Measured scan of single mutants.
Amino acid sequence: DVEPGKFYKGVVTRIEKYGAFINLNEQVRGLLRPRDMISLRAENLNVGDEIIVQAIDVRPEKREIDFKYIP
Rank of each mutant, 00 (worst) to 15 (best):
Q54V: 10
F7H: 05
G30P: 03
D1H: 14
N44H: 14
I15F: 03
E3N: 06
V53N: 00
R29V: 14
Q27P: 03
M37Y: 06
N23F: 09
D49H: 05
V2R: 02
R29E: 09
A20E: 01
L40Q: 06
N44M: 14
D66Y: 14
E26T: 12
P71H: 09
E3R: 14
P34D: 11
S39F: 12
G5F: 07
N25W: 10
E43M: 13
R14D: 02
L45H: 04
N25L: 06
G19F: 08
V28H: 09
Y69V: 05
I70K: 04
G30A: 05
E61Q: 11
F67C: 08
I15M: 05
V53A: 01
D1N: 14
I38R: 10
F21W: 15
K62H: 08
E16N: 12
E3W: 10
D36S: 05
A55C: 15
G10E: 01
F21E: 04
E43H: 13
I56A: 06
R41P: 09
P60G: 07
R63D: 11
R29F: 13
R33C: 10
R35S: 11
G48N: 03
P4Y: 07
E26W: 14
G48S: 01
R33V: 08
P34G: 11
D49Y: 07
K9M: 09
E16T: 15
V58H: 05
D66Q: 09
G10C: 07
Y8I: 01
I51E: 00
V58R: 04
E61Y: 07
L24H: 01
G10K: 01
K62T: 11
G30H: 03
A55W: 04
K6C: 13
V2M: 04
E64P: 04
V12I: 14
E43Y: 12
A55Y: 03
D36I: 08
K6Q: 09
V53C: 07
L24I: 14
Y8W: 02
D1I: 14
K9H: 09
D57S: 15
P71L: 08
F7V: 06
L40D: 04
L31P: 03
D36F: 09
N44Q: 15
G19Y: 08
V2S: 03
Y69I: 05
T13M: 07
R14H: 07
E26H: 14
I15K: 06
K17T: 12
V11I: 14
G5D: 03
Y69E: 11
E26L: 11
P34A: 14
K9D: 01
V53K: 00
S39A: 13
D1M: 14
E61A: 11
L45T: 01
E3G: 03
I51C: 04
K17A: 11
R35V: 10
I15H: 02
K6M: 09
K62V: 10
G30V: 09
A42F: 15
K68P: 03
G10A: 10
V11L: 09
P71Q: 09
K6S: 06
D1Y: 14
K6L: 08
P71W: 09
L31D: 03
L45N: 00
D57N: 15
I15W: 03
R63I: 07
E43T: 10
R59P: 02
R59Q: 03
I22V: 12
F21P: 00
A55R: 02
G30W: 06
R29W: 15
F67R: 02
Y69F: 11
G5H: 04
V47E: 05
T13F: 04
Q54R: 04
Y18N: 06
V12P: 00
Y69H: 06
R63P: 06
L40G: 06
L24Y: 01
R41H: 10
I70R: 06
V58N: 04
I22D: 01
R29I: 14
I38F: 09
D57G: 14
D1C: 15
D57F: 14
N46C: 14
N44K: 11
E64Q: 14
A42W: 15
F67T: 03
E64D: 04
F21S: 02
Y8F: 03
I52L: 11
G48A: 01
K17V: 12
I65E: 04
M37A: 06
E16Q: 06
V58L: 04
K68D: 03
P60M: 09
Y69K: 02
P34R: 15
P4G: 05
V12G: 00
R35I: 09
S39C: 15
L32A: 02
G10W: 15
E43W: 13
L32P: 02
N46D: 07
E50K: 12
P60N: 08
E43G: 10
R59W: 05
V11H: 06
V2W: 05
N46V: 12
A55T: 05
L40S: 07
K62I: 08
I52H: 04
I22S: 00
F7D: 01
N25Q: 05
P60C: 11
I56E: 02
D66V: 13
D1E: 13
K68N: 04
K6P: 02
N23E: 12
A55F: 05
R59I: 03
A20I: 15
R35Y: 08
I65K: 03
N25P: 03
Y18Q: 06
P60R: 08
L45K: 04
N46K: 15
G48T: 01
F67V: 04
K62S: 10
M37G: 06
E61T: 08
L40M: 10
E26F: 12
R14V: 07
G19E: 05
Y8N: 00
P60K: 11
E26G: 12
D36L: 07
G30L: 07
I51F: 03
V12T: 00
I52T: 10
R14G: 07
D57V: 12
E43L: 13
V58M: 05
V11P: 00
L24A: 01
Q27I: 11
Y69T: 03
N25S: 13
P34C: 15
E16M: 13
V2P: 05
L31C: 09
V53E: 00
P4S: 09
A20W: 13
V28L: 14
N46T: 14
N25A: 08
P4T: 12
A55I: 15
R63W: 09
F21H: 05
L24T: 02
P60L: 09
P60A: 10
R29C: 14
D1T: 14
P71M: 12
V11D: 01
V47F: 02
V12H: 00
R33Q: 05
E26R: 13
G5R: 03
L24Q: 00
A42Y: 15
V28Q: 08
P4E: 09
P4W: 06
N23R: 12
Q27F: 15
A42E: 07
V28R: 02
V53H: 01
F67A: 02
P60V: 10
E3M: 14
L31F: 10
N46F: 12
P34V: 15
V12Q: 00
F7E: 02
K62E: 08
E61R: 07
V11G: 01
Q27N: 14
R41V: 10
S39I: 10
D49R: 05
K17Y: 11
A20S: 04
N23H: 12
R14W: 06
V58G: 05
G19P: 01
A42D: 07
L31M: 08
V11K: 09
A55N: 01
L45I: 13
I38M: 12
T13N: 02
R59N: 07
E3C: 12
V53S: 00
I52N: 02
E26C: 13
N46R: 15
I15A: 01
T13Y: 07
S39D: 14
I51A: 00
R33D: 04
R33A: 06
A20M: 10
Q27K: 14
L32G: 03
Q54G: 01
Y18T: 05
N23A: 14
G48P: 00
D49P: 01
